[in-house]
Design a protein around this nucleic acid. Structure first.
Lengths: 270, 270
DNA sequence: TTGCTCCTCACGTCACGTGAGGTGGC
DNA sequence: TTGCTCCTCACGTCACGTGAGGTGGC
């Protein structure tokens, strides 16, 4: 007969755990001294204790273990318990993996954004834009409704997103409630999802400018950009583009004064 | 200003959760009526609430969220929190996967054992045994020390184990304390681990018998087996084999009366 | 007498869920 | 007056960990 301390060393169960298992009735001492209340365990109780250790390691709850120990004494009888528990653990593993993956995605997005706004030039520039794979959702509405397009395309493209959100504007003018526009993302690979238009978006010579601050004041940056187009006698080609290098984040909205948006208008010289 | 119920619908946080976040100071109502104690939230608090929802979905604790919200208001500032949390979730996912895998292994082992004892013949038989890949650990000692060999080989071979535990006996006689024996498992693939001997174990014509019950009475089954070898004038080739078709389980020891062991002695006819 | 082992409360954990019992405005 | 929304306790969760304060045998 072992007192609780020795039995604890043998079974690698803490003294408190042994007392708890006694209380819960899944591992009752073989003898309890009436005067002192000391618990004593027989050698033969070691098997039961190690079975409990193994079942706990499989994350069976104490009450499930009670159920198992009450009715069964052979491995082959509890295969169905194992099967159920396996799918429980499987789900948990997958769930944690999904969460991990989502955080990883978030980190990537933030990092990409940091890189892109690193050392951008605030002057109006003429530059050549590369072709890119782009997935977008086109609709007619108010300018601030574009968020739903990002959400739609974002869900569909997931890990294939390769750059910041963009909006394409098909009208050559300002329209308060019925602007024709398309929100989406550049991708690393083509996708084929109904309702989403994924194709190669052609680049070319473009006039661009960086807008810093909230979207309300974006008109002033367009003014600078179109001034240059006129002075250089270039012809704008629509859709024009807005690229949200840094906008509201995934967790925090952030301070709009720190938002960074690139405006791009492809031009044609006749 | 929204009362708590409306704010709950907007943010998809339960009323109780909102009260708890108030108590914990991470989401304080914008106004609390002094008389009634009613909580009211401004529209501008929705962003903070959705940030909390997203951080909770990443399994940040409430106190971590308090820390984050106290000092930060832009995604780019909390990348290090994300990185730490990602590795935490990564570990959890892997841990659950290991547990899942271990249960899956346990199930496979039990199933295999059930299959093998299904319809075995209790008579002494002469049959041909196939070659097999076998990994074993050979040592000299008492018969009941073979468990350590199974543990050693089992850890090394893991998923490659393809059948029940076996012992090979190299002495042609009974030896109480210094038997020369080897414990191990048949494998599906060769392994190369120092200290463990993995090779093809040759089969051949053999005399076999099934022993049912505890190992203490195994002598009687050997008696039947050797009686047949003698009566048929065959010559035994060592090592002989014991195959534990059903022995103590991974969780329960089970009842020794239900143990099933196959004894095999390869024979040569001159 | 001192140390050691053991005992029984009692409280804490973490993020809420679930009543019980009561109030104020439409 | 009735319903509805909200309020504040208070207790429960799950498997123990962590003291506090005390006892019995060597």
């Amino acid at each position: 007969m072992y007192p609780i301390g020795e039995f604890s060393l043998i079974t690698r169960l803490s003294v408190k755990a042994l007392r708890y298992y006694h209380e819960e009735g899944i591992l009752v001492p073989d003898h309890v001294d009436e005067d002192s209340g000391y618990r004593y365990y027989r050698k033969s109780s070691i098997d039961r204790a190690t079975a409990i250790v193994k079942l706990r390691a499989m994350e069976f709850s104490v009450s499930e273990i009670r159920e198992i120990l009450l009715h069964h004494s052979d491995d082959s009888e509890i295969v169905s318990f194992f099967e159920r528990q396996m799918s429980v653990l499987d789900e948990k593993a997958k769930e944690y993996w999904r969460m991990r993956d989502s955080i990883s995605n978030t980190i990537d997005t933030i990092r990409r954004s940091e890189k892109m706004i690193n050392g951008v030039d605030d002057e109006v520039l003429v530059k050549y834009i590369d072709d890119m794979i782009f997935a977008g959702y086109r609709f007619t509405g108010a300018y601030d409704e574009v968020g739903k397009a990002f959400a739609k395309v974002g869900r569909a493209a997931g890990r294939k997103i390769a750059g910041p959100a963009m909006t394409l504007y098909y009208d050559g003018e300002f329209r308060e409630k019925d602007a024709d526009m398309e929100g989406g993302f550049p991708l690393s690979q083509k996708i084929d999802i109904p309702g989403i238009d994924c194709r190669v978006l052609r680049g070319g010579k473009a006039v661009t400018v960086i807008h810093r601050g909230s979207y309300e004041s974006i008109g002033k940056s367009y003014e600078r950009l179109f001034a240059r187009i006129e002075s250089d006698r270039m012809n704008p080609v629509y859709p024009s583009r807005e690229i949200y290098l840094k906008g509201p984040g995934l967790i925090f909205k952030g301070n709009p004064r720190n938002y960074v948006t690139e405006l791009q208008v492809i031009v044609r010289e006749d």
